[in-house]
Simulated scan of single mutants.
Amino acid sequence: MENCHFDAIHLTDDGKYTINPYQCEGCRLCERICPVTAITCFQSKNNQWFVSDSRFGKMIHARMGPGEENSGKLVTKIRKKAREVARAGHADWVINDGPPGVGCATISSLSGVDAVLLVTEPSKSGWHDAERLIQLAKKFELPVWAIINKHDINPDMSAQMELAFQAKGIPVIGRLPFDVDMVHSMVAGKTIVEFAPEGAISQQLMNVWRTLNSGRLDQNPV
């Protein structure tokens, strides 16, 4: 029990050990170290990953079964495949769209990356989550930059977050306004930059991309 990092093994009232399938991450450590080989793990098909073509290039992604949660193992598989595809295609960038939180899937998405682009919203819960991700990125010794999404819906909180980011040495490289064109672009099956290239969000996103490509970010590690 003490060797399970996910607290998935429990002792019942009648003295038997059980494994909670909702807590188990499938690492199989218990199977390997059980002194009487009482545990056997079976392969199950819960999630599938794909390599797809898009008008912007290759996309490596996954589809999870109903009720299934993301896992670090799945993210690792996708991340490694993305790097393999990028090298074969001589791509300049690999962009990981990391999950929220600081769990196994998020930790896996940060492994081997060069930097973290944190996207948050101006709320107390948004700042709480941002702080946790910043702490996690520091453990990996990764530089962090921030984008504040919908910054204009709560100007006071946005200002507080800007000061907090500044105190931590984290540059805010994008301030995206709330805009219904974002919804309209999704309905039209286009990116916001394609749908409304002159719009405020598109201009901000293009500035973010230019900043990322400029190399200036290398001068601002956290």
Rank of each mutant, 00 (worst) to 15 (best):
G72K: 03
G72I: 05
G72F: 05
G72Y: 03
K73Y: 10
K73W: 03
K73M: 11
V75P: 09
T76C: 06
T76E: 14
K77A: 15
K77V: 14
R79H: 13
K80I: 07
K81D: 01
R83L: 09
E84D: 10
E84T: 00
V85G: 04
A88L: 06
G89R: 15
H90L: 13
H90F: 10
A91Q: 09
D92I: 00
D92V: 00
W93N: 00
W93C: 01
W93P: 02
W93G: 00
V94T: 11
I95T: 02
N96L: 03
N96Y: 06
N96R: 05
G98A: 15
G98S: 15
P99Y: 05
P99E: 07
P100G: 09
G101A: 11
G101T: 14
V102E: 08
V102S: 13
V102P: 08
V102Y: 08
G103L: 11
C104H: 04
C104P: 07
A105G: 01
A105P: 04
A105R: 02
A105M: 01
T106S: 13
S109K: 07
S109P: 07
S109I: 00
L110T: 02
L110W: 01
S111C: 09
D114V: 01
A115F: 03
V116E: 01
L117E: 05
L118E: 04
L118A: 05
T120F: 05
T120Y: 07
P122R: 02
S123D: 04
K124Y: 08
S125K: 09
S125H: 06
G126N: 13
G126V: 10
W127Y: 12
E131A: 12
E131L: 14
R132V: 03
R132P: 02
L133I: 15
Q135D: 15
Q135N: 14
L136C: 11
A137P: 03
A137Y: 11
K138A: 13
K138G: 15
E141M: 12
E141I: 08
L142D: 10
P143M: 04
V144C: 07
W145R: 02
W145L: 09
W145P: 04
W145S: 08
W145M: 13
A146S: 15
I147S: 06
I148G: 08
I148T: 13
N149P: 10
N149D: 14
N149K: 12
K150M: 12
K150V: 04
K150N: 06
H151F: 15
H151I: 11
H151A: 12
D152V: 10
D152Y: 11
D152R: 03
D152K: 10
D152S: 06
I153M: 01
I153T: 12
N154I: 04
N154E: 08
P155Q: 07
P155V: 09
P155H: 02
D156E: 13
D156P: 00
D156H: 07
D156K: 05
M157N: 01
A159N: 14
Q160R: 13
Q160I: 13
M161A: 04
E162H: 09
E162L: 14
L163I: 03
L163G: 01
A164S: 05
F165M: 11
F165I: 08
Q166H: 14
A167W: 00
A167K: 14
A167C: 06
K168M: 14
K168A: 12
K168G: 07
K168S: 14
I170L: 00
P171M: 09
P171V: 06
V172M: 01
V172N: 00
G174M: 08
G174K: 12
R175F: 13
R175K: 15
L176Y: 09
P177S: 00
F178R: 10
F178I: 08
